Simulated scan of single mutants.
Amino acid sequence: MTQWRDDTPIFIQIRQQMIGMILGGTIGEGAPLPSVRQVATDLSVNPLTVTKAYQSLVDLEIVEKRRGLGMFVLEGAREKLRTHEREKFLEEDWPMIKERIASLGLSLDDLLKREGKSDE
């Protein structure tokens, strides 16, 4: 069973899972998304929550609804998502990370040394 975070609406968390699947290639361009009913059952959530998540993907113009067939990933969606997620990271996440790095007195050297250790 999925563990939901309390700080983010469930439909956003579902949307992020779908975005991760598209970016990771689990769901390719031109491929259908899993049905709303299937996702709702698998995640034990209301189908309206999944519908809202899917609609937000339509709003991002990376998914289209095909009447009677379901939702499909649009061609070019992966690159569009990469651009969107990069911008979101730089605008929302990076300022907090940068502030945290500064408050801890970490230097670029400290970060790069740590990065090297995680690769070993």
Rank of each mutant, 00 (worst) to 15 (best):
D6A: 06
A40L: 09
E75C: 09
A77C: 08
I97T: 08
K117N: 13
A40M: 08
V50Q: 05
A31F: 13
V73M: 01
I62H: 04
D110I: 04
R37P: 07
I19C: 00
L57K: 04
K117S: 14
V50A: 06
A77R: 02
D42W: 12
I19Y: 00
T41L: 10
E120Q: 13
K52F: 01
R15G: 10
P9H: 02
F11A: 08
K52S: 07
V36F: 01
I97S: 02
V73G: 06
M1W: 07
V36I: 14
I19F: 00
T49Q: 08
T26C: 04
I27V: 10
T8Y: 01
T49I: 13
A77K: 02
R37K: 12
G28W: 00
Q38W: 00
N46A: 13
G25T: 15
K65S: 12
P47Q: 02
M71K: 11
A102M: 09
G70K: 01
L57H: 03
P34I: 04
E29G: 09
K88H: 06
I14H: 02
R67H: 09
I101L: 01
R5A: 15
D110R: 01
H84F: 10
G70I: 05
E29T: 10
N46I: 04
E75S: 15
Q16P: 00
S44C: 10
A77N: 05
A53E: 11
R100M: 08
P47A: 10
D59W: 06
E99K: 09
S44I: 15
E92G: 13
L74Y: 00
G24K: 11
D109F: 08
L57V: 08
I27L: 06
V58N: 07
I97W: 02
R15H: 03
S35E: 04
E99V: 06
L104V: 02
R114A: 15
S35W: 00
I14S: 06
S56R: 09
A40V: 11
E87Y: 09
D109V: 10
G76E: 09
E99A: 11
E115G: 14
M21C: 14
